[in-house]
Amino acid sequence: MKLDIKNLSHTYDIEVLHDLSFQLEGKRSLALLGQSGSGKSTLLRILAGLEKPTLGEVMFNDKRVTDPEYRKGVGFVFQSHNLFPHLTLLDNITLVLEKTRGFTKEAAHKRAMENLATLQLDDQAHKAPRNVSGGQAQRASIARALSVDPEVIFLDEPTSSLDPILTNDVLTAVEELRDSGKDFVFATHVMSFVRDFADYVIFMYKGKIVEHGPPEIMDGPKSEEMRSFMSKVR
């Protein structure tokens, strides 16, 4: 991935991101760490093009993230699975492919089943989200994100609503996508997953990037904020 953030600020009622500038190149998998309220979810959403930044400029793989075309190459996995509840797992994917990517019915079905199979959900394809476990639903939402063949997949605390066993289920599924050739940017509180999967880490505190570097920085934080954070999540 190639990431270029210039003077990014973002305000809801209060400013949640303060004048961030940051460059990164040649990494596959970027983890955002920080407490709730540190601004990492907001940064993730801005990087994915889901929210327009108040100020500043963000380029991802040489594309402006506010460009509607950029979004088409993005997959996003939300905290809760966020599947459309009235559609089966299969239809959640085929609807997207048929209506927004111009797939024929047959091609959409074929692609969707492949993606569901990748996440070991082919036997659950015809079930509604409410009739599968939280882990299965979250995996289906990963399958949905994959189906549009994105360049980059964003995951916003994808396991925060799951118990430890289902968490493991979902994260293992993500790890198996390592060789898919896609970029990953994710926020999570599961540190073992960060160590296994990330090849770069950003630590945020109160809307600023406090430390960044390879995952090894987690073992020897320089700042007081990150040291305190690491001692709580370990």
Partner: peptide, 27 residues
């Protein structure tokens, strides 16, 4: 219909008509 569902619809690039026809109204 949660805000996140609307985000997902935007992300995939559904048109307004498609959002109502296939996702909002059926729910």
């Amino acid at each position: 219909i949660t805000e996140e569902q609307f985000m997902a619809m935007d992300l995939f690039g559904f048109t307004s008509y498609q959002k109502y026809r296939y996702i909002i109204i059926p729910q």
